[in-house]
Design a binder for these strands. Structure first.
Lengths: 104, 104
DNA sequence: CTGTATCCGCTGTGATACTG
DNA sequence: CAGTATCACAGCGGATACAG
């Protein structure tokens, strides 16, 4: 209904977060920035984001290969959405902590 | 990171959407409002939303049973998040249509 | 370096039947 | 009416090896 899956999911917000703060990132840089993600998942998520015109994939015809990912102009429209989600996420954590006293 | 899972996922935004527009809804009313969802999933999602203090579950000690679900005060803080997501969702649909001409 | 291919276990989800 | 219990299965996603 809201098609939220296009930007949420386990990894997409994190990937977008890094891309928003770095302008361009290579595949390996994303891997290092998000160590918990597997190569396969990173590829899958990036392909989906690319398909939906949210990130751009620039391949350099070099050896060894070099690929840079960046947010598209259209993808930048997501910034407010991600901001609102992040803000809410922080407040929500605090609220949950007040309720249960858990820190995680 | 953003803990988006707490309100996104396959059904939660839809459930919240209905609760935001109806104030109170019984279990069966939610079932009818969202025919595609199974009883089990509806229960699961509602329990999670309840656990996170986003919806309130009011049980009437009657026979037959009657249960009403409503948004908590805290849950109302989600409205802007859901609004932003919905707005973006609509724009995104349009954008995808421009790209691929698909209507779905 | 940037992936793809394969195997494979685990979890999420549906269908169905049952209960207070 | 408002669920729970149980079974069953597909697909997500991890690990590993391989490829251009």
């Amino acid at each position: 209904m809201f098609h939220a899956d296009l930007i949420v999911g386990k990894w997409k917000p994190i990937i977008l977060f890094h891309l928003l703060h770095n302008d361009k990132l290579r595949f390996s840089e994303l891997q290092r920035a998000i160590p918990e993600i597997s190569k396969k998942m990173l590829t899958t998520q990036l392909r989906e984001l690319e398909y939906h015109d949210i990130v751009h994939r620039k391949v350099y015809a070099e050896v060894p290969p070099k690929v840079e990912y960046s947010i598209t102009e259209y993808g930048k429209k997501l910034i407010p959405v991600l901001e609102v989600m992040r803000t809410w996420g922080l407040e929500h954590l605090q609220h949950l902590d007040e309720l249960y006293g858990t820190k995680n």
